[in-house]
Design a protein around this nucleic acid. Structure first.
Lengths: 250, 250
DNA sequence: CGGACCTTTGAAGACATTCAAGGCCTGTGG
DNA sequence: CCACAGGCCTTGAATGTCTTCAAAGGTCCG
């Protein structure tokens, strides 16, 4: 039976993450939480559209909120329009991460989500997710956890913006990306930034020039090697120390 | 029967907000969303403890996450400890607002919540809320909306911190408090700030001195009247214009 | 009354921004 | 294939805003 095949596939993915080509449910941090049948049911409601091109919108501010999304490959930024109409980046999302929670309150998206590069996403229709959750508690529990993660991520960003210098903000973003790539079993010391300097600066509440100078500084002082968007973390420990004990880092 | 009495009370509160002395469920933005029976069921699971004194913790970072909370009267701040151990205020909560979502992901609170003044809160045990939600969908739908509100609030704060000057940040906080008091049918032009200058500055990512200077400036230029923590918004429109068109406000 | 804490104000200094210019890469069209 | 235009990124110098340091006034509470 087809169903059994799929179930088998998913179970395989469960034990062997990297083999899961078609879906990244495993990456959705679900692997060790849901059982194969539950995963199967979840898998059934996922819509897989064709990939988005760079700069293409996945949803726009004002759109009806119908689904939440998970990055399968590529990357996504979300932004809202400030009171004075300027764009404010509110998040970057890498493979295995979910986004689109910003419509929960009003049922309309407050943010716009845009692919930073060629990107494929899983779309989970919220209504079906609700139905599934009501019959399969572990699913709804896990969804709640994902929401909680979004809240915690946002609070960390608030703390970062409120209390850290330009160098610390840039360092923090790099370390965050590094850690998130590590979760996907990708290299945490060499990676390519999917976003531009302008997007980084906007996200971190700085100017492009300041971010650029931070990269130069980190390169000059041996924290990083930078080649355009290619980053190599040379001295990750010292970068971490910069966040906790900045005074030690001359 | 007692049940009928309570139901009647709640229904009364439903149509006549200000009469609801014992609980502020109506204030929880639930009034026009849930029907009286649903409200009754929700009311049944609410724990009403004795009020908290100023500076008293409602929950602490690391506590097991068991409940979410709604401010009945008084006010609350939440804060987390930064990477370097300093306190970072992440939110202020006024009557009718809910807090305590920060434990959804890990089941342990990331934040500490402290009463800013004598404060009474409703405690909603999360487990019971889940149970109730599974039999009464409107309840769980509403909870989801409340979570969504928290996410939107946090994102607005991110935008504020990333893109606004000191004056704008202070103005924005005052206008936010004003609007939130208005929702409770309280005066939106004269109010008493429950938090100290230090707490404001921490929340807004500024120093105490800068916040103090902002208040002085606003007073000097006729935006506000300030008397310690008593605030009167004299020219609210111009304050709003400061956020959208700062260049016009000399 | 005295002391601790919060708030305000001033002056000096630091850090990030603004303004300006040049380099590099990409893609387009001649 | 080369030339050129337009992004994007980098670097420098000047400016400005916020912070830091310092001190004094106010208020609350013992």
């Amino acid at each position: 039976m087809i169903k059994d095949d799929i179930l088998k596939n998913i179970e395989h993915a469960y034990t062997n993450p990297s083999s899961c080509r078609d879906c990244r449910m495993n990456s959705l941090c679900i692997s060790n939480v849901l059982r194969p049948e539950e995963l199967y049911k979840l898998d059934q409601i996922i819509k897989r559209g064709s990939p988005f091109q760079a700069q293409q919108a996945i949803f726009k501010s004002g759109d009806k909120y119908t689904s939440l999304y998970a990055v399968r490959s590529g990357s996504v930024k979300t932004f809202c329009l400030d009171t004075d109409g300027r764009e404010q980046v509110t998040g970057f999302y890498l493979p295995g991460e979910t986004f689109g929670w910003d419509g929960l309150n009003t049922n309309y998206h407050q943010n716009t989500a845009v692919a930073l590069e060629t990107t494929s996403v899983c779309e989970l229709p919220y209504h079906q997710l609700e139905l599934l959750g009501s019959t399969t508690p572990p699913v709804s529990k896990h969804v709640v956890k994902l929401i909680g993660k979004e809240i915690n991520t946002n609070q960390k960003l608030i703390a970062l913006l409120a209390a850290n210098s330009a160098h610390q903000r840039v360092a923090s973003l790099l370390l965050s990306i590094s850690a998130r790539l590590a979760k996907q079993k990708l290299s945490s010391t060499r990676f390519r930034l999917p976003m531009s300097r302008g997007e980084i600066s906007n996200y971190l509440g700085l100017t492009v020039e300041t971010v650029s100078r931070a990269f130069s500084y980190f390169q000059r002082t041996g924290y990083l090697k930078v080649n355009k968007k290619e980053i190599e973390l040379v001295d990750k420990q010292r970068l971490e120390r910069l966040l906790t004990h900045p005074e030690e880092c001359e």
